[in-house]
Simulated scan of single mutants.
Amino acid sequence: MICALASSVCFGAASVFQAMAARAAEPGTGSGVDVALMWRALRQWRYIAGLGMDGLGFALQIVALRTLPIYVVGAALAASLAVTAVIASRVLHVRLKRVEWTAVGVVCAGLAMLAVASGKEGHREVPDALPWALLAVAFGVLLLGMVAGRLPPRSRALVLGLGAGFGFGVVEVAVRLIDGIDFADPAWYALLVGGGAAFLLLTSALQRGAVTTATAGAVLGETVGPAVVGVVWLGDRTREGLGWLAVTGFAVAVAGSLTLARFGEPPAPADEAGPGSAGTPLEVGHDPAPERNPGTP
């Protein structure tokens, strides 16, 4: 559980750096997934720093996934939005509303319930088709990103975010299926393709879509599906008689995270940001109106 929470802290801090770098990168000409966007973002030192935090968070996530049920780890990862919100309030001087501070407390309460109710990870023999199904979903995430470019802006943000969440969910399940280094195992390729596709779609969603919509989609995609797979196919269970507490804690933690969805991309610091940096993230595709000169009609 300590590793799961530490992973959440790493991901929450990384999102601050990565989102700022994604916005600072030169935008592409298309409306969907921009493959070159990640390379442009890599020129930003903040994106490199964020990737380093993501690497550490992923290592901690692997440890957590090997010892905890997926539903616990997934909820902890969604709670990274609470970490981002707190960092934004302290470092970027973003004013949190009362409901958002309440949501931070709700997320913590949900994680506490899960910590009490969760049992060990399951060891059920998985169907042979499950790794191949994961690989198919991973490639499906890439296809989803291509289709998203044809959708209206609001729907595009949701689909890109949801697709990124599915990709991260594939990674969560694949980590549980991998047993040693075996490159003939499709779960390895599902992990690589799913993780890469998730980063690509999420980076595109941060630059091209409404932050709240994209982040909410990602939270739902990376929590609900993997939790169901863990319970149904991998044998994840709760402590005896505490199933109700685990379900409640999971729902509470995810609901609190969705309330904090706007912190999927906090605003840039005041000395670097332009209009819109005083506590509310700019929606992509809605440029601030230029200032009028005195006397100009």
Rank of each mutant, 00 (worst) to 15 (best):
D182Q: 11
G119H: 06
G241H: 09
G195V: 02
G194I: 04
G167L: 02
D182N: 13
V284I: 12
T296G: 13
P269N: 05
V137R: 00
V170I: 04
K97R: 09
A268G: 05
A246N: 02
V171P: 05
C108Q: 06
L202Q: 15
Q44C: 05
G256H: 04
V33P: 02
G55H: 10
A273N: 07
A136R: 01
R23D: 06
A198M: 02
R292D: 00
D182L: 04
A261V: 07
S15F: 08
V9N: 02
V254D: 07
E272Q: 14
A14H: 05
V63R: 14
A22M: 15
A148S: 03
T259Q: 12
G256L: 01
G196Y: 09
A109M: 07
W39V: 12
L5W: 08
N293K: 04
D54W: 15
G217K: 01
L151V: 00
R43W: 03
V126G: 01
P127V: 03
L234F: 13
M20N: 12
V229S: 05
S155K: 11
G241Q: 11
A112Q: 02
V229P: 06
R237Q: 13
S204D: 01
T29R: 12
V159Q: 08
E172D: 15
A218D: 13
T296I: 12
A216C: 08
C3D: 14
R43F: 04
P152D: 05
G12M: 01
G180D: 02
G12Q: 08
L114T: 00
M146Q: 15
V170A: 01
G230C: 09
A59L: 07
L60G: 07
A278K: 01
V137P: 00
A78E: 05
G149K: 09
M146W: 15
P294L: 03
A133T: 13
G55R: 02
L191M: 13
L242Y: 05
F199E: 09
D128N: 06
G169I: 04
R208F: 04
F166V: 07
Y71I: 07
R66G: 11
A109S: 14
